[in-house]
């Protein structure tokens, strides 16, 4: 089967690893080969967390520059930082709620302008789906469900060999029971947001 390569970037604490896990479990349920790699050395200390997920018949579990079919960014500046993983054929999905790093607060860097950021990503890739996932997470009932909103948007694009139902099944069976309802609502809001963009 064809190979689909997905990169997810986030800031520590945004729930990137849970969203990767849901995708992996959904692939397992669907009988699709999957390998994932994650770098989370100091995730809890506010660093960048990057996951690479490879679906289909391949052996590698990491993704080289220029090779991602989809890039999902949980934070706009991190999306831009990961553009090296993209090509002109890549679809990019990003949350637009900034989480400026502390280096900006102490004057050791300037946070990029959000309009310019979108223009740049659009120019370099096939398609950009950008929206305020944090607002939708709030609407779903949990500000921490940004990860599930973005999963919804990702599924809506149809790029992954997975259906929305398979994702929801993985959420129902593999995540904390207390959050299942809000998580599924968040996925649905993400699906709707991507459909409108």
């Amino acid at each position: 089967m064809d190979v689909t390569r997905l990169i997810i970037v986030a800031v520590g604490g945004q729930g990137n690893l849970l969203s990767s896990r849901v995708l992996g479990e959904a692939a397992l349920l669907a009988g699709i080969p999957v390998r994932m790699s994650e770098i989370h050395g100091m995730a809890q200390r506010g660093g960048v967390v990057e996951s690479a997920i490879v679906f289909g018949d391949a052996e590698s579990s990491i993704i080289s520059d220029g090779c991602a079919d989809v890039l999902v960014g949980f934070e706009p500046s991190e999306t831009l930082r990961a553009v090296n993983k993209c090509s002109k054929d890549t679809v990019v999905i990003t949350n637009m709620t900034p989480l400026p790093p502390f280096t900006v607060a102490i004057g050791r860097g300037v946070y990029p302008d959000l309009d310019q950021l979108q223009t740049l990503v659009k120019q370099k890739t096939a398609r950009l789906i950008a929206f305020d996932a944090a607002a939708l997470a709030k609407e779903a009932g949990n500000v921490l469900s940004v990860n599930m909103v973005l999963l919804g948007a990702l599924i809506q694009t149809g790029i992954l060999p997975l259906t929305a139902e398979q994702i929801k099944e993985a959420i129902r069976t593999k995540t904390k029971k207390a959050f299942v309802e809000t998580n599924i609502k968040a996925v649905d809001l993400g699906i709707a947001a991507a459909a409108q963009s």
Binding site: R45, L80, N84, S87, P112
Partner: peptide
């Protein structure tokens, strides 16, 4: 032919996000 990597020369410098004490 290796995959084409996007030209990043017009991307402004993105502030670093080193891990920090909590």
């Amino acid at each position: 032919t290796p995959p084409e990597v996007p030209d990043l020369s017009d991307v402004p410098e993105i502030p670093q996000r080193p891990p920090n004490l909590c």
